[in-house]
Amino acid sequence: MTQRVMMTGNNAVAEGAIASGCRYFCGYPITPQNDIPKYMAEHLPEVGGVFVQAESELASINMVYGAAATGAYVMTSSSSPGISLMQEGLSYMLGSELPCVVVNMVRGGPGLGNIGPAQSDYWLATRGAGHGDGRCLTFAPDSVQELHDWTFEAFGIAQKYRAPVMILGDALLAGMSEPVRLREHREPPPRDQEWAVGGLREGRQRRIVNSLWTDVEVMEELNQRIAARFSQARENEVRWEEYGADDAEIVLAAYGISARVCKTAIDDLAEDGIKARLIRPISLFPFPVEPFREWSERVSRIISVELSMGQLIEDVRLAVEGRCPVDLVGHSGGVMLTPDEVVCRTKELL
């Protein structure tokens, strides 16, 4: 077992990518994720990788598209306004069945917003891979260790489903330091995918990476293929954590940094004799429906605790299917939740 080191969330993401075999990174500056490109620019050349600073997020994601088409592990990172600009590229990648990893360190919005911590890109991630019928497989770590681990794992998941994978963090996780046990570096895998272009063809059939299908039947087949992969992801990639009382009377639903706040709140509530349980979705899409379905029959209500004006709550309600009330405790625009606030609001709603 390797020793743990202190690292920021941003650096842990970058190191996780390199350890996983990512050798290509294209990005454009935006706070609060600037330490990711900084780390990549410094360390990718040491392992024979390439860092390109793009002229915009539009260019970043399209460079990622090109590198991904060669079968390489490739990543970009940004924050909310930059992720908006990448939506077109994500749609093309999904339509062309190309894997990549995109990290979004979410900041306050809408518009230019601010650089405070927020979770207001939940819909953008889980509903949006741009236009068309797609979405992003989305994972939401709640610690620096998990940022490292999920970035490491994300490349394999992206390859398995031939789709973009989004790591959803926030300004606070990006900047805070925690101890991390680092992954062993592994070599980049061979680019032997049957769809990868470039290199020397050596007599093989030519290959085309494309999302244009004017025959509507063929276009629908692509959409069905993508949907089938998402169904497969629902079978295999759903992850969540539960924390707190086994005989809880109330459930808090929260992911990422909000879940960290809720863990403290649940401990504080226990001291006051209130039995609460946290269900923390780690995979946001595919969403962990099962624990919410199960607990909705056992508790008086569920509270969605999030740094947005009610986005996660929609998935919770879909999972609960009306079996119990679901309320929102949220802040937005860069304002942080406190455990005390969660405790007070929980007591009010109980």
Partner: peptide, 16 residues
């Protein structure tokens, strides 16, 4: 071999 790019993004795709 060929890659179809989004409108205007060809040189970024080619860069990648």
């Amino acid at each position: 071999d060929a890659v179809q790019a989004a409108h205007g993004r060809g040189p970024a795709v080619a860069t990648g």
